[in-house]
Design a protein around this nucleic acid. Sequence first.
DNA 1: ATCCAGGTGT
DNA 2: ACACCTGGAT
Length: 351
Amino acid sequence: MTPSLPDPALLLAWYDRHRRVLPWRGDDASRPDPYRVWLSEVMLQQTTVAAVGPRYTRFLARFPDVQALAAAGWEEVAEEWAGLGYYARARNLHAGAKALAAQGFPRTVEGLRAIPGIGPYTASAVAAIAFGQPVVPADGNVERVVARLMREETPLPAAKPRLTALAQGFMAHAAARARPSDFAQALFDLGATICTPRNPACALCPFRDGCSARAAGVQAELPRKTPKRARPTRHGVHFLLFDDAGAILVRRRPPKGLLGGMLEIPGTPWRATAWAAAEALDHAPLPGLAWLPSPGEARHGFTHFELRMTLLTARLPGPTEAPGFAWMDPQAARAAMPSAMHRLLALEAIG
DNA sequence: ATCCAGGTGT
DNA sequence: ACACCTGGAT
């Protein structure tokens, strides 16, 4: 006997009492601004609510609407996104703003789906939250809630299409269709505060009596996931070069791929084997300098490999041309760099 | 120190 | 199927 979804009215009643106050949520019944919903959803794809809060506010202050973001240069957007990770999203956000500024905000899932960086989830989230369309956006939280309610034992990601379709089943109920925006956000709040990955607070859950996983006592084990492969290690040597005025030499990475479009400290390629000193020096930004090693190693975990970096530092006696590179104030450079480079620069403070 | 979550593009 | 980053939990 397959379980059925519980009554969405139970969740909406809970939401009306317990909804979280968040910077991107209006405090009245007015329809949220689509730009703000879109921006918050893209940031929340990769970052916790707590971390997004101040960054969202800062981003919105600098780029208050689609037109402002579309008119900005990539360097400004990169600086504002630095440290948030998954930089393809910043590139897509910028490209998306240009498309939206030209054509306006589509109101449907299909129209939104055509905007760069808007996939199935974000299209549904914006359509439901900003435009009140009767769709249920299925992010990781919603997948977890539905996997438990319906006791879906198939591991993710194989179960994802089924869980997405099951979640949409809530819209068969009139209570959910009456409030798609609130319903979507109610599912997010439930997943974030009650139906958590570990130790779900079932006693407080508005769906506690309709949850198939809880009835079977397996709620903490769902959703199951296929195990991931081990991450290999890669090695790099980086070159921190100061000029006589205290500026440092930086380079912008190629526009696509790992840390695409972001500033970095110049270095060797990142490869599986460690670098011998002489071999690494072939990749120094300028030849013939006296490079001083910092003690220790900076580690940074990417999705599919762990990076171990060492740092060499040198100082130039005067201004020097370095084609393909730029000189920057160290503080400004740091602010515009991804976290991997912060780890690297921390070695110099010690050395 | 180690583990883990999390949407989109290709 | 795999590339893509970071911060929070343990």
